[in-house]
């Protein structure tokens, strides 16, 4: 499955997230991840939506059809920066702590909480690196994982505007 990353500029109006997610549910599209926050221009928000490639054209067109959507850009992984934040708590008594901390340092993950039976890491990185780290520590016993979903930004002046065919 190839994933596509869409950066969607929307008007910051009440309910706009509900409009987007309802449209996805109604049309049977799968959202791999969705993250939203205020954009540079006041009054607008930027959503980073990650979807399965097979549906990309209809997804883009249906998103554009929503009245509050201003602009959609498909981000090419080679020409954009993609990041995800993860917090993960993993089972570890004192005897395993050292091993885990070593692994974490390779991935530039940071221990943010250490307890008697667990360690909590924070990691910021590309979605695939974040996943790699998660898989590495999974065998120790995951207690809790939270992820932000992908956020992404095109590298300088290399956006490809995916406009509907006209």
């Amino acid at each position: 499955m190839t994933l596509h990353v869409l950066s969607v500029l929307v008007e910051d109006k009440p309910g706009v997230l509900a409009r987007v997610s309802s449209m996805f549910a109604r049309r049977g599209f799968n959202i791999h991840s969705l993250a939203v926050g205020p954009s540079a221009e006041p009054g607008n928000s930027t959503m980073t939506v990650v979807v399965d490639a097979a549906e990309i054209e209809q997804v883009v067109k249906q998103l554009r059809k929503l009245i509050n959507t201003i602009k959609i850009t498909e981000l090419d992984p080679a020409e954009s920066v993609e990041r995800e934040v993860m917090l993960v708590r993993v089972a570890a008594d004192a005897s395993l702590r050292g091993e885990l901390l070593d692994a974490a340092s390779v991935f530039k993950a940071k221990a943010v909480d250490v307890g008697a039976t667990s360690v909590t890491f924070e990691m910021v990185g590309t979605p695939s690196k974040v996943n790699d780290f998660l898989e590495l520590i999974r065998p120790y016993g995951l207690i809790d994982v939270v992820k932000s979903g992908w956020i992404a930004l095109a590298r300088d002046s290399k956006t490809r505007n995916l406009r509907a065919i006209s």
Binding site: E57, Q58, K61, Q62, R64, K65, A164, I165, S166
Partner: peptide, 18 residues
Amino acid sequence: IDPSEIGKVRTPDVPIVG
């Protein structure tokens, strides 16, 4: 006039939005 109708069921040889 609705771009989302174009290619929804059948991929056209010539799509025209208007």
